[in-house]
Amino acid sequence: MSTVLTVLRKDMLLELRSLETVPAMVLFSIATFVIFHFGLNRATIDGQLAAGVLTVTLLFAALLGVNRLFVAEREQGGFDAFLLAPVDRSALLVAKAAALFAFLAMLEVVAVPAFGVLLLGPSLGPPLLGLIAVLALADLALAVIGTLVSAIAVQSRARDLIGPLIGLPLLIPALIATARAAGPLLAVHGSGSPPGKWVAVLALYDLVFALLAYAVFDFLLED
């Protein structure tokens, strides 16, 4: 556990110093909202359409972070330095997933209000709690799959290609569940709580892949 915190702290410090990931994700999201405005030719959107636009934007923004997650480890010897230490290797998975989760949360703190201002018709106020719960589950899925995919892709040539190529299909079920769970929340006279069915699917997805990632991650570090 202390190893996880050590690595996580280092990642936060590194992001603070280099500002490579979170600002890029935020700018990308806002630019995407503008593109959706023109692409859809709509001043405001609501309901399932709004949920889809928000989910897809966050997903693609997340892929930017996924691509960068292990680059410093690979290029600056972070993997070797970590592997030389007498610590549990799975800690790296947990720490990286936690870092990605934190980056996504920071992204959403800016991107969701921006979405509310730029595109969303109904007010963001009433469904906010439900939306936070759904996005937290979605971020967990993105963090787990993103970390796994990033660890695979970073060792390949053309890693910027391999990451999204594997990540997108793997994330489709999570995307479906997120968009469907958020749809009723963003409707004009929306309900305040997300549909339980989709929250359950999302939670199941998180659970299965978190356990699976934990089981296979060590094999990505061996040499």
Partner: peptide, 28 residues
């Protein structure tokens, strides 16, 4: 060697994905 190992990791994750994906799409 790395290719083989990474491919196996991918395959295991993807195989587990098969049933989960069916559930999600069926519900949708």
């Amino acid at each position: 060697e790395r290719q083989a190992r990474y491919a196996s990791v991918f395959t295991i994750v993807a195989a587990a994905f098969v049933p989960l994906n069916f559930i999600a799409v069926r519900l949708a």
